[in-house]
Simulated assay, not measured.
Amino acid sequence: MKIKLPVVLLLAALCALPSLSPAAQTSSPQAEPAALTTRLALRDLWVEHIFWIRNYAIANQAGNRQAADIASQEVVSNATAIANSIAPLYGQPAAEQLLKLLAGHWGAVKHYSDASVSQSTSGKQTAVNELTGNAKALATFLATANPYLPEATLNTMLAAHGGHHIAQIDELGKKDYKAEAATWKHMREHILGLADALTAALVKQFPDKF
């Protein structure tokens, strides 16, 4: 049975989200310290997200439970940091809601990785469905919180992000490391674009904070 992936890896979707203007991208730290600091911080947090999930997938494929457990703990710690990063602007209840959604994202990816190891086709499809539903929920949450984040575009981007996780896990399982290296490159570019778009939306919504 072939896994049905209801996602399209469209990096072009980045163009539809608010992005930093050329002037903002080249401004000195003295000109926009808060915006620049936020942008770099969010970039670091989201790159850590894909880094630790990749570590989990590698350790899981190798049957290294100790390494997998540590990676899993780091994924959760990172998700907590991402959620808490919005608390100063949206409040702690919003941060807690985001954490639940990020936990759902991680849970779906973990389910897919585990199903891949056990070679469960039905388990993998269930995980894909979980990822798809979670992407929609995340898009709704973020778009509701910030009017400068279009829900439809966010959903496409987050679904594509989930698709990157799936492709990576499949490639690691097949030991197709060349393909996985290419996926990692696209995944990193995509997540940096998402982080930048989130920053730009925050700056637009809270100009007095930046």
Rank of each mutant, 00 (worst) to 15 (best):
D69N: 02
F141A: 05
F51Y: 07
I50P: 02
Q168G: 11
M1F: 07
K185S: 03
L14H: 15
S28R: 15
I70H: 12
K124A: 12
V109D: 03
A81H: 10
G173A: 11
A23P: 00
G104H: 06
E180W: 15
A143L: 08
L202G: 02
L102M: 09
A41P: 05
A201Y: 04
A12I: 03
A195F: 03
N146E: 05
I50F: 11
Y112G: 01
A81C: 00
A23Q: 14
S21M: 10
A127T: 00
L142H: 11
E96Y: 10
D208N: 12
Y177E: 01
A68K: 00
I169S: 04
I166Y: 04
A57H: 03
K2E: 07
Y148S: 12
A160K: 13
T38K: 13
N55D: 04
I58H: 02
D196V: 01
A13C: 07
P29G: 11
S85G: 00
Y56R: 11
K175S: 14
E96N: 15
A23R: 08
H165P: 06
D114K: 07
V203N: 06
L98P: 05
A59E: 07
H161Q: 10
K136A: 12
T183E: 15
K178A: 15
A13T: 12
T126V: 02
A94Q: 09
A71N: 04
A182P: 01
T144Y: 05
Y148T: 08
